[in-house]
């Protein structure tokens, strides 16, 4: 699971007041090699919750030198955009858990795929 995905996901446990952000526990992290598209990263900067990205990257030990606060005029700072690109798209939690901040329900991440199903529901 990429950190961009983590940034967008929210827990939907019934009765949980706030399911965001999910706590991320990483047992295994792999690094991918994704094409760098500065326009895309610039666009994402206006969509992602930077604080959540920073705290999550820090928690799993893949901060890659991104700043705690999003600085103004970063649009033309290619070095920064590359760092953000790496953290958003190339750091992948292969095995681990997402934990709902209020209900503490755990969602397993296996083979990079988070399982957001709530419980008994299954297709087979």
């Amino acid at each position: 699971m990429r950190l961009l995905t983590h940034n967008m996901l929210t827990s939907h446990v019934k009765g949980a007041e706030s399911g965001y952000p999910l706590i991320l526990e990483a047992a295994e992290v792999i690094l991918r090699n994704v094409d760098f598209n500065p326009e895309f990263i610039k666009r994402m900067l206006s969509k992602v919750n930077w604080d959540v990205l920073y705290q999550t990257a820090k928690a799993i030990g893949h901060l890659n030198d991104i700043p705690e606060q999003l600085q103004p005029n970063v649009e033309n700072d290619e070095e920064f955009l590359r760092k953000a690109h790496h953290v958003l798209l190339e750091v992948e939690v292969k095995e681990g858990h997402l934990i709902c901040p209020t209900s503490k329900k755990k969602f397993q991440i296996s083979n990079g795929i988070p399982n957001m199903l709530l419980g008994e529901e299954s297709s087979s």
């Binding site: 929210t10 019934k14 994704v34 798209l89 795929i113 988070p114 957001m116 199903l117």
Partner: peptide, 29 residues
């Protein structure tokens, strides 16, 4: 996942979820 690995695609994210569930994404992302 097998198909993605076969093609060595690095830009795919899979999620297991029920589409009819209540929101697991916040907004028009």
């Amino acid at each position: 996942r097998r198909n993605i690995e076969e093609f060595e695609l690095e830009n795919v994210q899979l999620i297991k979820a029920n589409i009819s569930d209540t929101e697991f994404f916040g907004g028009k992302i």
